[in-house]
Design a binder for these strands. Sequence first.
DNA 1: AGCATATTGTACACACGCTGTACAAAGTCC
DNA 2: GGACTTTGTACAGCGTGTGTACAATATGCT
Lengths: 408, 408
Amino acid sequence: MRKINTRDFRVATRSTSREINRRIALNVIHEHQPISRAELARRMKVTRGVAGVLVQELIDQDLIYEGATGEAAFGRKPTLLHIKSHDRLAVAVDIRFSKTYVMVCDFSGRQLAVEAYDTIFSMPELVRDLGQRIRRLAKAHGTKAGIEGVGVAVPGMVDQSTGRVLNAPALGWRDVELRKPLAVATGLPVEIENSGRACTLALLLLERSEAARPQNFVYVGVSDGVGVGVVVNGELLRGADHIAGEFAHVPLDLEGPRCMCGATGCWEAYISNLATLSRYFGWNLYKLSPNKLNSRKNGSFTVPDLITRARQGDAKALAAIQATARFLGLGLATIVNVINPECIYLDGEITAAWDLISKDVVDGLAERALTHKGGRTPIKVGSTQEYPRLRGAAALIAAPTFAAPRVA
Amino acid sequence: MRKINTRDFRVATRSTSREINRRIALNVIHEHQPISRAELARRMKVTRGVAGVLVQELIDQDLIYEGATGEAAFGRKPTLLHIKSHDRLAVAVDIRFSKTYVMVCDFSGRQLAVEAYDTIFSMPELVRDLGQRIRRLAKAHGTKAGIEGVGVAVPGMVDQSTGRVLNAPALGWRDVELRKPLAVATGLPVEIENSGRACTLALLLLERSEAARPQNFVYVGVSDGVGVGVVVNGELLRGADHIAGEFAHVPLDLEGPRCMCGATGCWEAYISNLATLSRYFGWNLYKLSPNKLNSRKNGSFTVPDLITRARQGDAKALAAIQATARFLGLGLATIVNVINPECIYLDGEITAAWDLISKDVVDGLAERALTHKGGRTPIKVGSTQEYPRLRGAAALIAAPTFAAPRVA
DNA sequence: AGCATATTGTACACACGCTGTACAAAGTCC
DNA sequence: GGACTTTGTACAGCGTGTGTACAATATGCT
């Protein structure tokens, strides 16, 4: 039951129905490709005539193509339709504290080239360097259609409408303009987004492996920080200023350990990789300044190393991981009580130890979930794909193709 | 950018455009009534011809009517259109720990009759009694069109799709079926909803006083418990099992005071009326059992009394109220960081002391808000209407008239 | 080979809905 | 009374889904 926005609505014209149905057809083809016109018509519950017209228009728009002839037990054999994603290219950029990754890929996420190098933090230099790399990569790998855009994933809060990075403590950025200068330097459309939310977009709009992907889910990526993306009714929750979904800084305890954001007791301060390592090494996060927190992350001992020790029988290592797991579950309970998603996608280094921690996570979740069913919200662990952040960045460019047209 | 649900979509038919535009017209008329066909056409940016047809259909559906002739400086005078709400009636029910309220009202929320009586907690009796009252009221006040439905607001979690009350600790209900038996007892359609969310629906879809009502906002009602309703993109956040938006039980401190829900440290346990009174009287909520918590609420000394004492110079009373205000603000910060609404509607007894507490609330909010702008999210205080919960209950019946048609 | 059967894909008449133009109705100003 | 303005309706035109018909293609059986 959605309210019509009486100050910003779209009246239906005589081409609105076609726009809607064309987009539905594209999504059905995307999910069930390869698929024939007749099968499309059955799934859409329209006549084959209309399906044929919709398909022809999508072919004219270069969004799909006719592939080989399919098999059928009886009757005329169908011509199968496919999404045209192989020769549509995007550049994906993932800027992290340690490294910056740049990838050229097609709209299905297939990698053509990947580069990684030490992140440049100062702003004019970063744009100049990144612009040169992207132009070089575009020249080397661009098809005749060229690169259609640059998607950038950043560990921080981004006003996606203006392309400004509002606050990225891990990079030391505050209210930095990035989209416009990078667009000028590359000559391409640029989209910037928080890395967790970019991953969420990739899950929502590009992933087609899992047939039953829900319209309401939450993505949680635990790494140096905690990135969260919320999908409500098939739409990424953005909020009034495009900064919604920051569950990472919801407190578990107002007087808890210091967080990189400056506050205390944030969920992130309990479950980030740094927090897990701190438990093992006995660092006192309550007394560290935000600057010193950052320097700790440069250590050579990582969470995967900690998991290895836990598997080798180091009881302290196991205890540290399981303590994180409990707090992870307690924070997920907040997400479940507030968003009530169909499922939660959990990603990050610590998920490699899922067999060791799943009980603690689920127990923590059930402990504070308000309903029995909420406490049993399915948690799907680990990304099947390499470079989830880069896929997310690419999704920023590729996803709008499949989005529903705005109506009413 | 919304994803099309490929397992549950609606293809546009040749009447879809008309459905969309008719509903837009209804909403524009609702917001700007009285309004002429020509003015409607200008606001919708369609020709007067189409507007005329849409209006005729809405008249045929008995949703609007032609009123008096309006004034104009030049030219032919317009016939003004109005929403037909006066002879469309609903019954609203508000079940609370202390009293149960029943109201007959029209679709604009205008009261025709109100009754209040001690709440019956046991289930077959409640339905029998309520059914009798509603049938009697319907007979006394029903027009020829009759009553169109019964809306019930309950302090607890409700699966609005099945009409079951999943958990209402204040009433001692757990997984209670209410909609179906009440529908049988009254012979009317019945809708059940959490009281905070019902109020939110009323704000979203019925209130037309405030021209600039946002599409993204949060309602927070502080009373015996804390009711929260979240509106995202003009739609009430419901979640997979219709239990989303429970910010009341997000913890401020995992080890905090005992809450009626059974957990500890919930926001509600810091800011409910009981929590405020406990601060003044020195009750230790950490050590009280949930049962005893309930009995405390029966006391004759209320928050309004406490506010009176604070205004009379009772420093302890003022301190208790302001401590609540600070925690109120800290919890609002979580809402702002997670939902990022355009504004927050705050209601409840304590808002009568807004002049005494606004600074503490805003300071608490700014303290943990992740962005400067988020920390300054406008807070709109107090309901202009009497019986906000009853208006919310009525909205359950009246609101669907104005909802956007589902498309794609 | 020839026919019945089944499925795919296209064509066409028709109904429905928005668009743009024209015009009658109604009222003000000079 | 005539020029002008605004409201409300009528109508031809075009876009789009609906339903039916039919050609194209392939299998199975006689």
